[in-house]
Amino acid sequence: MHGEFPSLLGAGIVLLFIFYLGYLSLKIKFPNVILYILLGIVLADVLTDNELLYFASEIGIVLLFFLLGLEFNVKRLGGIAKKIWPSGLLDVGLSLGVSMLMAMAFGMSLFDSFLIGGIAYATSSSITAKLLDDRGRMANTETEFMLAILIFEDLVAPIVVAILIGVSSGETFTTASFLILIGKIVGLTAGAILLGKTVFKRFEKFLARIEDEDFKIALLVGIALSYGGLALYLGLSEVLGAFLAGMMLAEIGKIERVEHTVLPIRDLMLPTFFVYFGTTIKFGDGVPMGLFLVLLIIWSIIAKVLLGILGGPIYGLSKRASLRAGLSMCARGEFSVVIASVAVGSIKIFSGIYIVVAAFIGMLLFEKAPAITTKIYGKPERKKKNLKVPGS
């Protein structure tokens, strides 16, 4: 009977659960993303390999980063790239490098240590971007730095995944294959810049002539999915492709027209990504390497906080904004899941437990980041305005 359960009924039930949990999160003032992930964990046996849920989750994550990309035209992105690379390399050293050395100190092989380093490396782009949007922090001074780090990680993480998959499959990962991978990233980015400067330069006028919203939805979502899908076809991340698709359209004057059309679709589909993410977490029996797991989680938090404290000022942030940024980037997520899929045996169980714990702690730290920063540095002083009193 399990095989006869209609997918349509399952989709309807999942959406009703999403509505209820979203409503509940507002009442109890608890991050809805955590509740969505818990729902996925609870329904993991029922929703395992559910293609409909997977497809909806892909659309949700692609549209999230498509809308993020709209905020960064080529000129702004170029300026950010010049400023972010020192902090980006610091991130690689702290999160990937030190975690890898810790794993080797616990007697793991070079491959398993690199795998653990990869899992502990990338901040969850989807969780962080969703929380920034939900909590109204997109306009904060540290947000550009955080998004720049996420983009840097989205460029490095596919390289890590490619190396791991190449080695685990028995293929030799040569210098040539590494250069080909870099070439794909450069080519995809160059293509987005070229299309943005040519084809989409006059896109605003064309969009203004389309009165029917249905056609607009098909066009804009089609652009986002196509470039995200092209990135996947090239062996890269759909998140990177979607961001570049948004960047292409950022060249138009009024991005509000695009945002207004795409936002409802994103808001419907995005929660399904976190439900699907929950279904991929497999706990297994017991907790392998308990001491190392605790130490890795602690270091994962310290590494991102240090990234904020040390990397933020390099980028030009104040101490206050730097600490807030570091505390807000501790969640691990989708790239960690992709990397963990390469693992086997106890390492896979270890990875699953690490990801879900790190995701939860990271989201809670995001929520508390402003309060913790205020406790350490005090309330920010309001700038006094020189007001002249009449008759004085």
Results as ranks from 00 to 15, higher is better:
G290A: 14
K304W: 00
L268S: 02
I297A: 05
P288H: 13
F283H: 01
L263R: 15
L220E: 01
V258A: 10
K304L: 06
Y315M: 01
L240T: 12
G311M: 06
D214F: 10
A331P: 04
Y315P: 07
I301L: 13
L232E: 14
E251G: 12
L270I: 00
M269S: 14
V294S: 12
F243L: 09
I298R: 02
S318M: 05
F273S: 11
K282G: 10
I309F: 08
R320M: 08
K282W: 09
G290N: 02
A218W: 06
G290H: 12
G326T: 12
F277P: 00
G222Q: 10
F277N: 05
T272R: 08
L230H: 04
L219W: 06
G235A: 05
G316I: 01
L270S: 07
A325V: 00
F215L: 07
S318T: 15
L225S: 05
Y276A: 03
G284C: 10
L220T: 04
K254D: 15
L219A: 05
P288I: 14
M289I: 04
H260Q: 10
L317A: 10
E238F: 09
G228S: 14
I252G: 08
M247N: 13
F283N: 08
V262G: 01
L240C: 04
Y227V: 10
R324H: 06
L323A: 05
R324C: 12
G229C: 05
G308A: 04
E238R: 04
L307C: 14
L240K: 14
L220A: 07
G308M: 03
L307F: 06
H260D: 12
